Amino acid sequence: MDVLYTGCRWAEGPVWFPMMRSLLWSDIPNDRMLRWDETTGGVGVFRSPANYANGNTVDRQGRLVTCEHGGRRVTRTEHDGSVTVIVDRFDSGRLNSPNDVVVTSDGAVWFTDPTYGIDTDYEGQKAVSEQDGSHVYRVDPLGQVTRVLTDFIKPNGLAFSPDEKRLYVVDSGRTHVPDGPRHIRVFDVAEDWSLSGGDIFADNGNYDGLRVDTDGRVWTSATEAVHCYESDGVLLGEIVVGESVSNVCFGGAKRNRLFITATTSVYAVMLAVNGARTF
């Protein structure tokens, strides 16, 4: 396992940009985003301040989509560097603190909205929630915002299967509720993008962010390791990291390199599998 960088307070939201051969990620408490260059091995600041950015992804046009704790919004960085607000409110209230985000093949933006960024000033700005809970949302290609899941304590990481017929969502509610959830749930996705099901997929780790490979295996942060699950929920193995893992993503020319954000550092592991496209 390679150590690409160390010196963060809480590294999160890794995202791979093929065109730049670079990895971007968030260092939330330090209010910055960093970039690792595969061609040189160098690391520099991509954005600072960064509105306490958390989760990131790439849309189908190659643009950066970011969850911002500080702005309590989801934004898109255009090719010219300007920032477009995708969503910052639902009904009459501001969002809590968008956490993780994915873009589906139709161009819709799906994101989770727990309260971690407004609970304290450590990862954002302490504030009172203006929503009635922590939910999962979808912004369709026309900008219509819909709550798609409302029975979570603290929805966190989310990822679709390669065929987009399954949606995996982490509930890390144990951070706020004694004996609360710390599991991954799986939902069936219909052709109209409606969801059903919601059974527990895995329940043996403190999960946060997750991604899926081309064969449908789920790779997820799990306390101080990365767990790999078969699509039926069977644990296949783990990569022990040694510090609390927040998130993962696939990258490299063949998407067969797993990038791991873990508290202070960013790691990389070459794999014999390939990550599914996330855009």
Rank of each mutant, 00 (worst) to 15 (best):
M1W: 13
M1Q: 10
D2G: 07
T6C: 08
R9K: 14
A11W: 01
W16K: 00
W16I: 00
F17R: 01
F17H: 07
S22L: 01
S26A: 15
N30V: 05
N30A: 15
R32Q: 15
D37R: 00
V43H: 05
F46Q: 03
F46N: 04
N54G: 11
N54Q: 11
R60G: 05
G62D: 01
R63G: 02
E68D: 11
H69C: 05
H69R: 06
V74P: 01
V74H: 12
T75V: 14
T84E: 14
V85W: 07
I86R: 05
R89G: 06
F90W: 09
D91N: 14
G93Y: 11
P98K: 13
N99C: 09
D100P: 06
V101M: 09
V103N: 01
T104P: 00
D106G: 13
D106L: 07
W110Y: 15
D113T: 08
T115V: 10
T115C: 15
T115N: 07
I118Y: 06
D121C: 06
E123H: 12
V128F: 08
V128L: 13
D132R: 14
H135N: 15
Y137S: 00
G143S: 05
V145D: 10
L149P: 02
S161W: 03
R166Y: 07
V170M: 09
S172H: 08
V177N: 13
D179P: 05
D179S: 07
P181G: 14
R182M: 11
D188V: 11
E191V: 03
W193I: 12
S194F: 10
L195G: 11
G197M: 15
G198E: 03
G198C: 12
G198W: 08
F201Q: 00
D208W: 04
L210V: 01
V218H: 05
W219P: 01
T223P: 05
H227L: 03
C228P: 04
Y229L: 09
L236Q: 13
L236A: 15
G237L: 10
V241M: 03
G242P: 03
S246K: 00
G252D: 08
K254Y: 15
R255V: 07
I260T: 05
I260S: 06
T261E: 05
T261L: 11
A262V: 08
M270F: 13
L271N: 02
L271W: 14
A272M: 04
A272R: 15
A272Y: 07
A276D: 09
R277S: 14
R277Q: 13
